[in-house]
Simulated assay, not measured.
Amino acid sequence: MKKILLLIFLFGFSYWMNAQYIEPEKSVKEAEKKKQSEIITLPKSKFDSVVAKNMLAIGKSKITGVAFTRARESKNFNMKTGNKVNANQMKITLYPVTPYFQEFYKLYKDKTKHNPKKNMFVEMERDAYRYRLEAITNSDGEFTFPDMKPGKYYMFGVLDYVTTYNSHQYTGSGYDGYGRIDYYSPYSYQKNDSELLELFVEIKQDGEILKVKLK
């Protein structure tokens, strides 16, 4: 009898083990095939590193600002009318607005060229990507780009934050002399949000302190 029970146990354990399915990792060939299926668009203009380098050379101007957004509120149709959300410890990237970058940005905003859902991407040349500046905000969302020269610049950052929504949940029904009564209780839930903050700015004269809001 004990042997029979042992065999049943071993058979059941073996079946449970065999029922497990572990998703295999994609092979190098599969990853490469997916990469080859991507449609990559690059600007046709030639990137001029001398122009970009000169625009990012040390100057006497400064860009200071604050990065933030507004929380979405369900009571106002999910519009950004809630409390101010400061960009805490967010990286802000700044590019000089060269002719090459202008073409890149136009392509990037074109949904027929850049659409990740359709595996379509607009990219910059590696050298163009290198010519940039970065700043990290403090807990109040404040940031600074010192030693800037006059010129046009583009800055952006991705702000991740949590939004709290308030609603009412059905908890049951009852009856009185007038008929049925439905009961609801308030509850709240949270949702992770991510928002692109971007801005074009221009320093018009050397020594200028430009104050901006990145939102």
Rank of each mutant, 00 (worst) to 15 (best):
R72T: 13
N88E: 12
L94G: 03
I136W: 10
Y108G: 01
E198R: 09
N115I: 02
E195C: 06
G59R: 05
G174P: 02
S27R: 04
G141D: 04
A31D: 06
D140W: 01
E198W: 07
N54K: 15
A67W: 03
N166Q: 09
K44L: 02
D147Y: 14
M1F: 09
R70E: 06
N192C: 00
L199W: 01
H114F: 12
V97G: 02
A52V: 04
Q89S: 15
M148A: 05
S188K: 13
L6I: 14
Y21L: 07
N88S: 15
D127V: 12
S27M: 05
S45Q: 11
S14T: 13
M1A: 11
T41I: 11
R132P: 00
Q36A: 15
M1C: 04
D147Q: 10
K60L: 11
L197T: 10
Y131V: 04
F11T: 14
Q89D: 11
L42Q: 07
E142F: 08
G172S: 07
G179R: 06
M120N: 02
L214K: 09
Y129E: 10
A19V: 00
L214I: 05
M90S: 08
A128D: 01
Y175Q: 10
M90I: 14
V162W: 06
K2H: 05
G157Q: 05
Y183H: 11
V97Q: 08
K211T: 12
G174N: 09
D48T: 04
Y131S: 03
H114E: 10
Q205G: 01
K106M: 07
F121W: 14
R130K: 13
L10E: 00
I40A: 01
G12L: 13
K3F: 02
F77E: 10
K34E: 15
Y165S: 01
E38W: 11
T69G: 09
